[in-house]
Design a protein around this nucleic acid. Structure first.
Lengths: 189, 189
DNA sequence: GCGATTTGCCTAAATGCTTTAGGCAAGTTC
DNA sequence: GAACTTGCCTAAAGCATTTAGGCAAATCGC
């Protein structure tokens, strides 16, 4: 029996592609086996379970997204940085819907702590260096930005803004403008 | 064989409770049958498929949420209305996490059109009557509010804000304040 | 009341995904 | 080249979905 050369990494990458094609929920060990033309049980030497596979895909996606974010933020500040990071999330979600859905997988605390998740909060916080916010407002603002990015992107992905005017690109631009204005003019308690 | 009195409605309600207990993804026709102490196949007279069951739960949740929203908005305007509607979403998600997750189920266009989904957009738009926004800014603002409500609530539900200071209630209050300020001072393009 | 019809829940069975146990042969090591 | 490790295999059990067909309980017409 010829060896195909399965590894956790190859399975994870293939799983991520599968997720983008058919949706993260539809990612299945069985389908992955089919794609490698291998029996299902064979995958279980490389991946502990279906859940383990999904977790690995989530970690991959978080990592990719953090790298893209870091690249986009380099050399930018204030409004430019805000727009750059927002676009990274939105573009990633549109190009890789399955991977983006994977980033929303609930990880157990230990796994989450070891993930690139922390980098995401750090990047958002970095944006705020371009604005004049002290704690605890800075944390509130980090959470607001996270909510808007995630909320907008997932509503858009679910088709919430389609088939109605104005188109969602237009709204996205104006939402980022509004956030910039808000951060420059953050209300006192 | 004694008849238990199954109906689509009872199954849907029980499914919604099950969702709140074990998570929307874990809602299964088999588990529902167990709870009614009935054979699985029996449910298929009342529900077309597992997907159909989930869709019914989603429609129920959208309806409940729309009713709560309408009640909360009655007699309120401006900032009060904004806070009231925001709290409806947040409280519902915290009290009924499974049902809230159900509202995010992707519905086919026909079902979505017949759902209470439209009421939600209308309610958000109603809030904006208390602010001075013309189209297309009004639509942008509707989408922003939807993004923040959904984004915040789902990040909070996923534990994104837990175990870190300040607590998420505090952030929520300040986020609503910030949105109010933003709507009163919406930036020109 | 009582027969006819509808309705509700049943048994049975096929399909598909997950997961574990144990085996054999291809690759690696010395 | 023998001994070991590793990769993919067969086999089988468990559970969820879904369909087909059956019997009995509720309901309706008379």
């Amino acid at each position: 029996m010829a060896r195909v050369g399965l590894t956790s990494e190859r399975l994870t990458r293939a799983g991520a592609e599968l997720a983008d094609e058919v949706g993260f929920d539809q990612v299945t060990v069985a389908e992955l086996a089919r794609r490698f033309d291998v029996k299902v049980a064979s995958l279980y030497s490389h991946v502990k379970s279906s859940q383990d596979l999904k977790t690995r895909i989530a970690l991959l996606a978080l990592e990719e997204l953090a790298d893209l974010g870091a690249a986009a933020l380099a050399g930018r500040a204030g409004r430019d940085a805000l727009i750059a990071l927002g676009d990274v999330y939105r573009d990633y979600a549109r190009e890789h819907p399955g991977r983006y859905a994977a980033t929303r997988l609930r990880l157990d605390p230990a796994t989450a702590a070891a993930s690139a998740g922390g980098k995401h909060a750090q990047m958002t916080r970095a944006i705020l260096r371009g604005y004049d916010l002290a704690e605890p407002d800075q944390t509130h603002a980090v959470r607001l930005l996270g909510s808007v990015f995630h909320g907008f992107v997932s509503l858009e992905l679910d088709g919430g803004f389609s088939h109605s005017e104005p188109d969602s690109q237009e709204t996205w631009t104006r939402v980022l403008d509004a956030l910039d204005a808000l951060l420059r003019n953050w209300p006192a308690p």
